[in-house]
Computed example of a mutant assay.
Amino acid sequence: MKTKSRIASIVKVNSLDFSVTGLQSFDLSALNLTTDLEFQLPTNVRLGHLVEKIVSELIKSSSNYNVLYENTQLIEDNKTIGEIDFIIEEEHTKQLIHMELAYKFYLFDPSISSEAINNWIGPNRNDSLKEKLEKLKTKQFPLLYHNCAKSRFKAIAINEISQALCLLVSLFIPYKYKGNFNPIYEKDIKGYYLNMETFSKLDNPAKNYYIPSKKEWGMDPAENEIWTDFNGVVKDIQTCMKEKQSPLIWQKYNGSYIEYFIIWW
């Protein structure tokens, strides 16, 4: 995995704003960063932890924000009751922000509801945007006001800390879907999803494919150097279908690159 490409992919991702989440947002575009950033990344971690590390380093590398606390566990009676992702400080105003971070891939299923907010689900249908926001509002952000937090963050005034969500999303819609989306969603749509039957029908000898690992999700397919034909990926995709896993596919065709999920459901 190319370190610079992985870092750049996170810098470019938009954060869903207040009009969707109902929570104050923190967008990484607020960071004053030098170009061509590079720093060492951990290897044996899951995607979520990898992104946390990248965002932490981005904040520390910026000229206008500092990290005061990160990944702070709150413990009560020897039990961990939760974790605060970040408490950061704006350099000029000294404003403190409790920031929660999430990096999510959601697929739009129009059959769920007439309200768009209800229809964004995880690739394997085991999580959703609505559930994530509910958890943040009822569990994550209230942690700041728990007695454990007050004792853990003695050096700062809890009541003077604002709260913000950095929800980095990549959105995918059904193949050939004709519905309209709010511009807030539109700018985050990266590709589409389809089933195995449709994928097979759309193949032709000029197409090349790559199945990125989870830690590569969100990176630019155009920077990938390893490609294969339909026969090189079909067995792995069939295995994913049997295991009820929806893989992300990168495709190169006639000099252009696209990405999509193949769903098992």
Rank of each mutant, 00 (worst) to 15 (best):
K190W: 10
I7M: 09
D220H: 04
K104E: 08
F172R: 13
Q140A: 10
Q251I: 01
H146T: 03
D220M: 10
E115P: 06
S213I: 12
H49G: 03
A155F: 02
N119C: 15
N71C: 11
I173K: 13
K132P: 09
N124G: 03
I156Q: 09
A149F: 08
K60N: 05
S5G: 11
K242S: 15
K139T: 08
S62I: 15
D17S: 04
I75Q: 01
K137C: 01
E100C: 09
G122C: 09
V67H: 08
E223Y: 11
G191V: 15
L168F: 06
A30W: 07
K215D: 12
Y193T: 08
Y260D: 05
L133H: 02
F86I: 09
S56L: 07
I237W: 12
V233F: 01
I81Q: 08
K154F: 05
N254L: 12
E38Y: 14
W120D: 12
D127F: 10
V11F: 00
V55P: 11
N71K: 07
K94H: 15
Q238M: 05
L194P: 10
Y65W: 15
E216N: 12
A102T: 06
L168E: 06
Y175Q: 02
I97W: 06
I88N: 09
S213C: 00
Q140V: 06
T43V: 11
S29A: 09
S170I: 07
G122T: 12
S9I: 05
V51H: 13
N195K: 05
K53M: 09
Q24K: 14
Y209H: 06
I173N: 11
D229H: 13
V13D: 13
N118G: 07
T72Y: 11
T198Y: 06
S200N: 04
G232C: 14
I249K: 06
V55M: 12
V67I: 14
V45E: 00
F105C: 14
G48T: 08
I75H: 04
S113T: 00
L202S: 02
K201I: 06
N147V: 03
G22Q: 10
T35A: 11
I263D: 02
L107Y: 12
I226Q: 00
S128E: 04
D220K: 07
S19N: 15
K79Q: 14
Q24A: 06
A157E: 11
R125W: 00
L96D: 02
V45Y: 03
Y145I: 01
S62E: 15
V20E: 01
K244M: 13
F261H: 00
F199M: 07
S25Y: 06
W227C: 10
S62D: 14
S151C: 11
I112C: 04
P110N: 13
L143F: 08
K201Y: 03
I10F: 09
I158L: 03
K207N: 02
I249A: 10
L47H: 05
N147L: 03
T198K: 12
E38I: 15
K252C: 12
E186P: 08
K135A: 11
R152I: 07
A157C: 07
F86T: 10
F230S: 03
W250A: 08
S151M: 02
N119A: 01
Y185M: 02
S19W: 11
L136P: 05
K137N: 00
Y65T: 14
H146N: 06
L47I: 14
